[in-house]
Nucleic acid binder design. Structure first.
Length: 432
RNA sequence: GUGGCCGUAGCUCAUCAGGUAGAGCACCGGAUUGUGGCUCCGGAGGUGGCGGGUUCGAGACCCGUCGGCCACCCCA
């Protein structure tokens, strides 16, 4: 096929999936609103420098996954690979850091990766960022609000919370040196990927999927032994708060995050239902990032949820969100009938705008129009033919009520001006 | 970037020692000149992803390429 296709890894989201997306968006928006978070809408494109400085120069994202290009001025721009950097940039630029500030956003992100289940090149995240509070009660809030979202989505049973602290930057550096020394001495036992990471990002070796590497790490120095006192205290306090709130979690000492800006608390919500891409939401504290990007020192904590992965979970659990079928289908045969029907239905829409009324358009015999009416899933057909036009009436025929199932449709022909009242009666269960 | 599997009608899939394709569902029409769903009858729809090669002949074999899925990697 020489037809133009969607770019690899950038998918269309079709009408039979969008109800799940809307359900997700509405649920998240409602919960975040209830915690006092305000929505911020950010550009998809930022200066390339912003991501280089925040995510980290040697991360895979910056080194090989960004969609970067020069605009007509020769400035290097990048389609955002994640949301935090842009949100911090906006918070600094728009002076949003003066008070504790709770923000959220949703939208597409772009990374040049090999597509796979739960991973695409254009994907969507919902991000939550809380600025200005250094204490772990803010960490707890962010975690608890995400847990509430899973509950409201009916996903609480399929995700678990993994928790860790990676300490201060200084503590991490000391640990990093110890880890590298240990692994360097056993370099031959490391798999190829981990040997490479020994140079680029040694901490990432901790969450290697290679069993041999994991076994080797059993004898390695532990990050916990290198933590600074403040990080230890904060982590203990966070655990105390989560315990008090009845929020379960698993401490995973080998949980680290891929982006450079994290410190102290890190966490991931993971599932076993999605194959290899099991992280459905992840976040942590990033106290140094605002200052690093030129703002005044401001502690912060945030998270990002992967919307595709959440929708996959929703689909896996077949939670009953369905495409809404039509309420009524308009059958009209002949030019005069089509005109009458159009005008009458427009009048009905003026008053009953919550009804889904699908008008038959184009040609079609009476029979074929009735077939379309049936296929539409509509509860009833509104029929205009020669007789109705001549008499100034409309025939209302139930298509799938109990009565209709029995093969004895009790259709009724009513004066046109009674159509609205007839519909109100028929859809009484729907009307407020 | 690496690897495995896969690419035949709108969808799900067949067929065959290599001799230029078929079913189900969906779609359209008819049986029922204005009444859907069930049933029956009929119809339309494929340059077999694309490009090369082997062969008298390839959808079937080989190579390349593009695309899909899954995994590595990465991460949401």
């Amino acid at each position: 096929m020489s037809n133009i296709r969607a770019v690899r890894g950038m998918n269309d989201i079709l009408p039979d999936e969008t109800p799940h997306w809307q359900h997700l968006e509405q649920t998240v928006g409602r919960v975040l609103g209830a915690y006092g978070y305000g929505e911020i809408r950010l550009p998809l494109v930022e200066s390339t420098r912003l991501f280089q400085r925040s995510i980290g120069e040697v991360t895979d994202i910056v080194e090989k996954e960004m969609y970067s290009f020069e605009d007509r001025n020769g400035d290097s721009l990048t389609l955002r690979p994640e949301g935090t950097a842009g949100c911090v940039r906006a918070a600094i630029q728009q002076n949003l850091l003066g008070v504790p500030r709770r923000l959220w956003y949703a939208g597409p992100m772009f990374r040049y990766e090999r597509p796979q289940k739960g991973r695409q090149r254009q994907f969507h995240q919902i991000g939550v960022e809380a600025f200005g509070v250094a204490s772990p009660d803010m960490d707890a809030e962010v975690i608890l609000l995400s847990a509430r979202i899973w509950r409201q989505l009916g996903l609480a049973g399929s995700v678990t919370l993994q928790l860790n602290t990676i300490g201060s930057s200084a503590a991490r550096q000391a640990y990093r040196a110890a880890l590298v020394a240990y692994l360097e001495a056993r370099r031959g036992e490391l798999d190829e990927d981990s040997q490479r990471r020994l140079q680029s990002n040694p901490l990432r070796i901790l969450d290697s999927k290679n069993p041999q590497t994991q076994a080797l790490l059993d004898g390695a120095p532990a990050l916990a032994d290198y933590l600074d006192a403040e990080s230890q205290d904060d982590f203990a306090r966070l655990r105390e708060l989560l315990d008090a709130a009845g929020q379960g979690y698993v401490v995973n000492p080998r949980l680290v995050r891929g982006l450079d800006y994290y410190n102290k608390t890190v966490f991931e919500w993971v599932t076993d239902d999605l194959g290899a891409q099991g992280t459905v939401c992840a976040g942590g504290r990033y106290d140094g990032l605002v200052e690093q990007l030129g703002g005044k020192p401001t502690p912060a904590v945030g998270l990002a949820m992967g919307m595709e992965r959440l929708v996959l979970l929703l689909l896996a659990h077949a939670s009953g969100v369905a495409e809404r079928p039509a309420d009524a289908y308009v059958v009209a045969v002949g030019a005069a009938a089509q005109r009458e029907a159009l005008v009458a239905v427009e009048a009905v829409r003026d008053r009953l705008d919550e009804l889904v009324i699908v008008q038959h358009t184009g040609a079609g015999s009476f029979k074929s129009q009735m077939k379309k009416a049936d296929k539409s899933g509509a509860r009833m057909a509104l029929i205009w033919g020669e007789d109705e036009v001549a008499a100034g009436t409309v025939t209302v025929k139930p298509l799938r009520d109990e009565a209709a199932q029995g093969g004895d449709p009790e259709q009724q022909t009513v004066p046109r001006e009674h159509l609205e009242a007839t519909l109100v009666a028929a859809f009484a269960d729907r009307m407020g």
